[in-house]
Design a binder for these strands. Structure first.
Lengths: 243, 243
DNA sequence: GTCTATAGTCGGATAGAC
DNA sequence: GTCTATCCGACTATAGAC
């Protein structure tokens, strides 16, 4: 895939020295917004600069003016995704992170927080926001990670996962670093994300066209049931102890 | 992505009329084998015919001799994947399908079958076979399905999913067509597949390099625990009844 | 059946006018 | 900052010798 660039600022062109965020910034934003869509749908290799330009309603050289190269546009997309996801997920995990930092909440409260969190993630992953193409962007990066993956992983995934793992850990009375805790956290997320990564299969297997309204409610109910069962006190953990 | 072709046999060139599977069939197989790797890694757009040819150790025109076009190679890959997956999954689900066709097995036996099945799927999705690149091939198709997705869906996914759903349905005392049953089946698979689709994230979050040996055992143990809990008799289903 | 050579197209990127 | 026009390399695909 793309060659690394020798110069400057993640492929983004430096702003002119006279300073000031001129009208061009709106164009810049429009390019990124369109590129998210195009890259998300076709991938880096499948998207052409001409597609990107047309989709953004700008001419081809505009792309190279605002971003040094196609890769520059791509990385700018990754940064945009990281920024937006970070904001969104921070909103979801904010209360949990606070609660976990303070006095240990009772078990019922912990489970409640987890269920609420999963509910929020379900809205995010199953609903049809503008954000939906981003997931494919990220999934593709997992097949062959570029700098874009580093950006998103370090700025969003790591923190969000650790918050979740800490919560799961509390429920299992183990630290967030425990591997069993981390695996369980991972499978938990997997249940949700699969509706997005295997969306076409999901659509065909359910006969649904989307996952909104009542359908979303059904999915959430199933998830709650399963998670509540998985974290039922008697079922706390499997036999083996680590140390 | 690729334009549909007007002619012949899923893009595969008809064999010469003198019949006979000459030496060329070995070349053909080598091309497909290499192409699976290249398409799996780079996607359709990201892969070039030159890559395909070099990787297979053939010259460029050989590609067009055996397959009409780049798309022909791609579709042949899809057929290969469908064929192999079908074989593999039939092996896994064979006993289950038989058991479900006969006299209703006791509940404990049903759960046991489900756990065994999940074990088998875990080996498949987490282990590092030759088959590993295929998953990315399929995941990409979910973003923007082409004929390749139809091939794989109809030949493998549908049947495998329905077997699983039937089993899950029995455990929940509902038909395989019930939406709650299908959703639960879907989340079940999601837990497994996520280790492959989000492999890079999984690797970074666990610090593991692969999911073999003891690590695979840990993942399997976690899955068994969770599934057993989710299908515990008391936890049979959520409140609502359908009809 | 397999090659070399090449046609024809489209890709990313740039020059230079305005 | 934004455009038209264009370069040039890489791409898919084919023609035609062997």
């Amino acid at each position: 895939m793309p060659k690394a660039r020798a110069n400057a600022e993640d492929g983004r062109r430096r702003r002119p020295a006279d300073g000031g965020y001129a009208r061009g910034d709106e164009t810049r934003a429009r390019i990124i917004s369109a590129a998210l869509d195009v890259f998300g749908t076709h991938g880096f290799g499948g998207a052409s600069t001409r597609m990107l330009a047309e989709s953004a309603g700008v001419t081809l050289p505009a792309l190279h003016y605002y971003f040094d190269s196609k890769e520059g546009v791509y990385l700018a997309c990754a940064e945009h995704i990281a920024e937006q996801l970070d904001g969104r997920f921070r909103g979801l995990t904010h209360d949990v992170a606070n609660a976990l930092a303070g006095a240990p909440p009772p078990r019922a409260r912990l489970l409640d927080m987890l269920l609420t969190l999963v509910d929020g993630f379900a809205d995010f992953f199953l609903g049809g926001h503008e954000l939906e193409k981003w997931v494919m962007f990220i999934i593709r990066e997992q097949a062959q990670p570029t700098k874009a993956f580093d950006i998103i992983f370090e700025r969003v995934m790591q923190r969000t996962f650790n918050t979740l793992a800490t919560l799961v850990g509390r429920l299992l009375e183990r630290p967030a670093s425990d591997m069993e805790v981390r695996i369980r956290t991972f499978t938990l997320i997997g249940q949700l994300v699969f509706f997005r990564t295997a969306r076409e299969a999901a659509v065909r297997l359910t006969g649904w066209r989307d996952f909104d309204g009542e359908r979303l409610k059904l999915v959430k109910r199933v998830l709650r049931t399963q998670i509540a069962a998985a974290f039922a006190p008697e079922q706390k953990l499997s036999r083996r102890r680590k140390s």
